[in-house]
Amino acid sequence: MDLDHFVRSLPKAELHLHIEGTLEPEMMFELARRNGVALPWDSVAATRAAYAFSDLQSFLDLYYAGAAVLIHEQDFFELALAYFERAHADGVVHAELFFDPQTHTTRGVAFATVLDGLERACDEAQARWGISSRLILCFLRHLSEDEGLSTLAQALPHLARIHGVGLDSSEKGHPPSKFARLFARCRELGLHVVAHAGEEGPPAYIVEALDILGVERIDHGVRAAEDPALLERLAREQVALTVCPLSNVKLCVYPTLAQHTLGQLLDAGLKVTINSDDPAYFGGYVAQNYIDTAQALGLTRAQLKRIARNSLEASFVPEGLRAPWLERLDAMPA
């Protein structure tokens, strides 16, 4: 079995996926025409040519411009269903989708419009491909904590449909501690909590996310490699890291994939997972991230199975749902 087939055959969970970041240029232009939205680019080719990012902020500027085409429930449904179709081809059995309501509500799109479209796509993905899913509401960290609390208030009538909360957007200058009250309230409400930390921000942000926000997973977390004490803690506590290798290279966190610390994190015993982040912008969905990383770092098939197992174990699903996936995975030859 070649590497491509092996990777796509691995039952895996995707735990770090921004649904707005799956907006391919072709769909962006289709929705722009349908909804009468003017884009900064005049063609699909020009849009793709703009995907040369110098850092996280240069990506976010383009990301928010593209998201402006998402207005109606049907738009969010089509966006998410297109992702699920690709995920199915990549061997994803469970996906936990980040969505950014503040990106849309500030444009006058109702919170329920976003949620209704995404939830309908989740139901359709279960029916068509048997893909399980969860929705994780992310707060934009470049906005204030009070704005995050306002968004949480909008979410309260819908909490039965939201599985957890996260923290994303510009990391530099916006430490996790900025959102201590917000995340304390989310924990009181019984929501799972995760946060982006240690991508462009320092290892200290990972510590804050753990100790102040009380997160269960760290999104990215790659700069933990700079702090031996933190590495030891993450290994001991088996805190999952939702690493996004192609994203890290595209956003200049590492010059090349061969210089990525994922192998070092694995060797240190950390619970590393591989995910695609914003695949429409970063050059590959989850299987491509596995394949390119394996080739760049010389990962063995046993290590790839371990990474897939980590993703299933770190997912927010009951053990009864997880067990059959793990049995399938264990039955695969390494």
Results as ranks from 00 to 15, higher is better:
F316Q: 11
L329H: 02
E200A: 10
V92E: 01
L143E: 11
L265H: 04
D90I: 15
G198P: 09
V37T: 10
L270S: 13
A89W: 01
Q259M: 10
R233C: 02
R134N: 02
H196C: 13
G298R: 08
L60S: 09
M1K: 05
P40K: 05
L257Y: 09
A110L: 15
I212F: 06
A121Y: 12
G117E: 11
P279G: 07
L56P: 01
L137N: 04
F76A: 02
S276Q: 07
D100T: 01
V193N: 05
I136S: 00
H163V: 10
A49W: 03
V222S: 06
V193E: 02
L191Q: 00
R128K: 15
D277N: 04
A112H: 13
L231F: 11
L137V: 09
V286E: 07
L231E: 08
W41D: 12
M28G: 15
R34K: 14
A204I: 10
L159K: 11
A287Y: 11
I274N: 08
A160H: 12
K12M: 12
G283Q: 09
W129E: 01
E147V: 12
E119G: 10
R181F: 05
A46Y: 03
T103W: 06
L210P: 09
S58R: 07
G91S: 11
A209G: 03
